[in-house]
Structure formats: C-alpha cells, structure tokens
C-alpha cells in the first residue's frame, strides 16, 4: 500500500486496478433480486483516466461503488495496487480507502456543517496528522484549485462548481492512487463542467493519479484515455481514445 514517491518514473502499463468475475446482486434471494453486475472483468493501469458510460441502470455507479468499496460485492475479486481487497477487514478496508481512494460525487457530498477548509482537512486529521499541518495543507490545496478566497465558506454559501472544487480538493488531499468520480459534472453547467474536466486532466497528467469517472456525457468521456461501455451489468466494449492520450503527452 506504499505510495510511489516519483510517479512520473512509473511505467504507465502497470495495472493499478484489476477486477475479475465481479458480481453484485441486490435483494439477494428475494423476489425483487437485481443482478446489477454480472461478472465484470476490468484492468486499469496506473495513470490512466477512464470513463465508464452506459444507459441508466446498467451498473456504472454500482461498479464504481464496488471499486471504492462503498458497497459489498456478492462475489469476485478486486485488486487495487497489488492488494486483494477481499482479504481486508472492514477497519483495514476503511484505512485503505482513506489512503488510496478519493471520491468525487455528482451531488458533491460535502459536510453541510463544515467550512471548505475543514472539509478538506478532515481526511488528513483521520490519518492523525497534526491539526496545524492539516490546516495548512488543506489551505494550499484549496488555493491550488482556485478556492483561496472561499476557505471559510459553508457548502450552502458556494456555487455548484465551487462545491465540486472543494470535493476535488478533499479527494486529492491524501494523494490517493485512484480517484473515483460518479457523474462529477452531472450537476454543473457546461462551462463549469469544462473547468472541472480540465482540472481532472491536469491532476491526471501532473500527479499520474488514476481517474475513473462515471458519466452519461459523451463529451466528458472523450476527455478520458479509455471509455468503458456497460450494458446490463456487463462491460460490452472498451473504446480507446488516442486523441486524449496524445493531448496528455503534450
């Protein structure tokens, strides 16, 4: 679970995430059982930026939740950064998630009672980092994302784009290996969406952090290196996006 110090030296081909035979059934054994994921197989390499697309109810968010271990799988294997997560206890998984996975949600999911800087510093505090240091790092991160003048604002005092920037800052603060985004621009207008996507690309490029985004929006998906298409709980097709890869290299 150790993080690599020099991410740029890493070979981009090394898989950061390997999913095999992943199944998820809701209401298992009941008449209203839903087989949301049906043996998903997927490998994501470190530094990749990947989009998952598909119609509503095809299992995109479920897959993302499985990767982030926000929900329990029915069966299958998920290996993140060489760690078979099925062997981890709940406590170990929580710590693993805290240190290795960052989340960005469509509805931002900021704590309504915390200011921007408090929200961002919380993951650092959870790691036991000194409160003063955590505050400074959180401020730096927010300034970096252009939120330097909104440090002490509550979510309700921020616009959607600003809230999503705070959410991004919170997801990045622990320098996770994978960042998962569930329709991260779904609630934003096109200009703000574009800004946020530029931000994601910048992060992906400079930090070599892997991004997995669930989206409905073709235009968003086209900003990613790969587009994974899902149908009825299965991956139907993986579309390579050389244009985006080229752009990243520039």
């Amino acid at each position: 679970m150790k993080k690599t110090k020099n991410k740029k030296d890493q070979a981009p081909q090394k898989p950061i995430l390997t999913i095999s035979k992943l199944h998820k059934r809701y209401n298992e054994g009941k008449p209203n059982e839903v087989h949301a994921l049906q043996g998903v197989e997927l490998t994501v390499r470190k530094g990749d930026m990947m989009a998952i697309m598909g119609s509503s109810g095809c299992g995109k968010t479920t897959l993302l939740n499985m990767i982030g271990h926000l929900d329990r799988r029915s069966s299958g294997e998920i290996i993140i950064d060489g760690v078979d997560t099925s062997t981890l206890s709940d406590g170990q998984m929580t710590a693993f998630r805290r240190d290795n996975i960052g989340f960005i949600f469509q509805l931002f999911n900021l704590f309504p009672f915390l200011t921007a800087v408090e929200d961002v510093e919380t993951p650092l505090l959870l790691r036991g980092i000194n409160s003063g240091l955590a505050r400074e790092q959180a401020k730096m991160m927010l300034r970096e994302l252009g939120m330097g003048d909104r440090l002490y604002h509550l979510p309700t005092e921020l616009s959607g784009g600003q809230q999503q920037r705070v959410a991004v800052a919170r997801a990045l603060i622990n320098q996770p290996a994978i960042i998962l985004g569930d329709e991260p621009t779904g609630d934003l207008d096109s200009t703000t969406s574009s800004d946020i996507m530029d931000l994601f690309r910048r992060i992906n490029k400079t930090n070599q952090q892997t991004l997995v985004l669930v989206t409905h929006n073709r235009w968003i998906a086209e900003k990613c290196d790969y587009i994974v298409h899902m149908t009825d709980g299965k991956i139907s097709r993986i579309e390579d996006n050389p244009l985006a890869k080229e752009e990243k290299k520039r």
């Binding site: 709940d90 406590g91 929580t94 998630r97 999911n109 900021l110 704590f111 309504p112 959870l126 919170r170």
Partner: peptide, 16 residues
C-alpha cells in the same frame, strides 16, 4: 445517514 455515508467514504472507521 447521508453524512454517515460521507464519513465512511472519506475514511472514517466504524468506531469513529
């Protein structure tokens, strides 16, 4: 519940 979900998502262990 939602806040609790958020807490869990960003790494709060159950005990916390």
């Amino acid at each position: 519940k939602r806040e609790i979900g958020m807490m869990r998502a960003i790494g709060f262990p159950r005990s916390q």
